[in-house]
Simulated scan of single mutants.
Amino acid sequence: MKLKKEFHNKILRRIYYHTVIDKKILPKRYSKRRIYLFGVPEHLNYGDIAIFVSELKFLKENLPDFEVITIPERLVIQKIFEVKEIIDDDDIVALHGGENMGDVWPFPDMIRQDVIRAFGDKYRLISFPQSISYNNEFWVNETQQILKNCIDISIFARDKKSFKI
């Protein structure tokens, strides 16, 4: 029981550190490249938290030369403008996974589309694993138009159905 409580507290501290503190994103002080991870969760859904922790681990293991800047979901729109002022050509923009790309949950998808619109025409984008589903033809066309403007985007799917889409 004690171990479970310690793990829970460690997760809460990590979420607080990465999301709750709203600090201005500062220009780089040194030449290390950055990954701007947009849309990380602030709620206590353990599945979403596990995805976030896994994303950080993946980035640190596979792109160790990058500094990871996390941007909570409630601040995405505000931080798009801050990041646009300081991002460098060799930085990467990443999107938190675990949600749904499509019209099933429109609000998270609209935020994702805003990030892709803001950075897709100039920067490399990574969308961590998503479930993908569309019911509305307009939404499909809108997403296709946004993605056509991207110069380099990788979208990872969580399941076979999403991968086929």
Rank of each mutant, 00 (worst) to 15 (best):
E73P: 00
G97Y: 04
M101H: 04
I87E: 00
F119H: 05
P64I: 13
N100C: 07
I71D: 01
L12I: 13
R13G: 03
I87Q: 01
L95D: 01
E67Q: 15
S131I: 04
P72A: 10
I86A: 08
R29P: 01
C150Y: 05
S162P: 11
H43R: 13
F107M: 09
L95K: 08
L63N: 06
D114I: 12
K160P: 03
S162A: 10
D90V: 01
R117N: 10
E67V: 13
K23R: 14
E67D: 15
Q145N: 14
D121A: 12
F38S: 04
K164H: 10
D89C: 00
V104E: 08
V53C: 10
I21N: 09
K60F: 11
L95I: 15
I116Q: 05
K148G: 03
S133C: 06
S127A: 15
K2L: 14
R14S: 07
R74G: 01
Y134F: 15
L59S: 09
Y16S: 05
L44C: 02
N149I: 02
S131Y: 07
E67I: 13
E73F: 13
R34M: 05
S54L: 09
E85P: 00
D90K: 14
K60D: 06
W105E: 11
G47C: 09
E137P: 01
D22A: 13
K122H: 08
K161T: 10
S133I: 11
P72N: 12
R74P: 02
I11G: 03
I155K: 04
E42N: 09
I155G: 00
F156I: 11
T143H: 09
D88W: 07
F81K: 10
K122T: 12
N62K: 15
I132K: 02
Y36L: 09
R34A: 08
P129C: 05
L75G: 01
D48V: 06
P106A: 13
H8V: 08
K122R: 14
I153L: 06
F156R: 07
N100G: 07
R117F: 02
G98H: 05
F163M: 02
L63D: 01
L63C: 07
L56S: 03
K23H: 11
K148Y: 13
P41H: 11
E82K: 06
N136H: 07
L44T: 05
K79D: 02
R74Q: 06
K4I: 12
W139T: 13
I126G: 00
V104D: 08
T70V: 14
N100K: 04
I25P: 00
V53S: 06
S154C: 04
F156A: 13
F163R: 08
R29K: 15
C150D: 05
F7H: 11
A94T: 12
R29S: 12
G47Q: 03
I111F: 01
W139Y: 13
R117P: 00
Y46L: 14
G97M: 06
K161R: 10
L95G: 02
T70K: 10
E55K: 10
D89L: 09
T19A: 15
D88N: 11
F138D: 10
L26Q: 13
N9S: 10
T19H: 09
